[in-house]
Amino acid sequence: MPRTDAGISQKTISVLGATGSVGDSTLDIIASSPERYKAHALTANSNVEKLAKVAIETGATFAAVANETLYGALKQALAGTGIESGAGPSAVEDAASMPADIVVGAIVGAAGIRPTMAALRAGNQVALANKEALVCAGDLVMAEAARSGQPILPVDSEHSAIFQIFDQDNRNQIEDVTITASGGPFRTWDKEAIEQASPEQALNHPNWTMGAKVTIDSASLMNKGLEVIEAHHLYQLPASKLSVVVHPQSIIHGLVTYSDGSMLAHLGAADMRIPVAHCLAWPDRAPADTRRISLIDIAKLTFEAPDVERFPCLRLALEALEAGGSLPNIMNAANEIAVAAFLERKIMFGGIPKIVEGTMKHFIKTGDIKDAGSISDVLAMDAAARRVATDIQDMVQ
């Protein structure tokens, strides 16, 4: 870790998923503190133009695009810059494996599983925004993190909040961990209206600016179910010690209740740069040009119980966690298929939980929900669940 002229140790940061919303937040923090951080390897799925642009702007040393057919376009966009390039899933894993002080895992979906494991196996510190790595392969990922001797740093605002108030030395005295949810754009809608919602309505999140997949998951509350499963793995807690509360203001992001009755809460603005800044500076803290909150201006914080009748995706995620084995992986794969179909207007919003539940029931009936022994097993089950979900999608409106 080199030191700058100011005497500050400069960290090298690789960003997997550099062209998405979390990637934007990460690169913003890097650009605002060049004395502290330097971009190293950057990856994207297919947005070559933006990937090349940010690689050049940040002085990255390597850029890779997951779509291997776009290698020529990336190489041409980087010609004369001295930035090395690659393409295909293996190139993304190569980027994750390159020695770096922190690898930010911000790839959306199950595509982030192998790169996350590659980063951990290389001994890199991982700051994880990719929920699916833990939802689909949590036991395997956490075992690899344990072997590396470094904790996974959570980038999600909720898990970053919990990480900061979770007393690891007194974990046996923790009674409950509460994850907050904004409630999304449909918080006050009735069930029938929610089921008929359009993509435009579902993408209109009241508090956060995120990518399309995460925004749809927030609208269905599936995002909160995924986060509960994440918390189970990150903090090694049973489902009975994990809860969800709807908090429309998105000021409190997580709470931890202890056996003496103390409840600790983490507060912050709805600004993804805050948890990113925490991860990049960890175990220290560093100045960051992020949004601040004023309790006087906020004036009032409210809370509600989540409604799993109107938002069945949350129920399904919790049921998958309770059942264990490969069911969370199956549930996630079906949800990815369903969300893509909704965004392509092939199904109504109410079709998302129907596809997820139908896929889960199929594998429960066949009894094929055993624990995965390897990442290959995880990805094979993911593929099988996607096939079943696609078949069910054709029967759902």
Rank of each mutant, 00 (worst) to 15 (best):
A372D: 08
T26D: 01
G268N: 07
K224D: 02
T116Y: 01
G138Q: 02
I13A: 06
L42T: 09
I274M: 05
T180N: 14
L255P: 00
A137T: 01
Q76A: 15
I107C: 04
V141L: 04
N207L: 15
N47E: 08
A63C: 12
A193G: 03
L70W: 05
H233C: 12
S250Q: 11
D260F: 15
A122P: 07
F166R: 03
D297V: 09
L316F: 10
I337N: 01
V308L: 11
P154S: 06
K346P: 10
P151S: 02
T26W: 04
E49C: 12
M395R: 15
I162T: 06
G149N: 10
A161Q: 10
A64C: 09
V246N: 03
V378F: 07
S21C: 12
L221Q: 10
M348L: 13
L203G: 07
D297G: 11
V22P: 03
I296T: 09
M263Q: 15
A60K: 08
E192G: 04
A129M: 11
A127M: 08
N45C: 05
I352D: 03
G261T: 10
L42Y: 04
V135W: 00
P185Q: 13
I83H: 07
V396W: 00
A383S: 14
G88N: 03
G268W: 01
L153Q: 04
S97H: 02
G350M: 11
Q397S: 08
K191N: 08
I29Q: 04
W282D: 03
D139Q: 14
T215P: 13
R114V: 06
I296Q: 07
E35N: 13
T4I: 04
E309S: 14
N124D: 02
M395Q: 15
H278G: 00
A55N: 01
T366S: 15
S294Y: 11
A18D: 06
E84W: 02
V308A: 08
V103T: 01
I8H: 09
V155K: 00
I298R: 00
F349K: 08
G20V: 09
S148I: 09
E84K: 11
Y235T: 09
L318I: 10
I298M: 02
Q397H: 06
Q236V: 14
L120W: 02
I8V: 15
E144N: 12
L242P: 00
T19H: 06
L321C: 12
L140F: 07
I252N: 03
N207Q: 15
H233G: 07
M381G: 04
Q150D: 04
S14T: 12
M381H: 02
K75F: 06
I293K: 07
A118N: 01
G324K: 09
A288H: 07
H266Y: 13
V378H: 05
Q125Y: 07
K365N: 10
R171N: 11
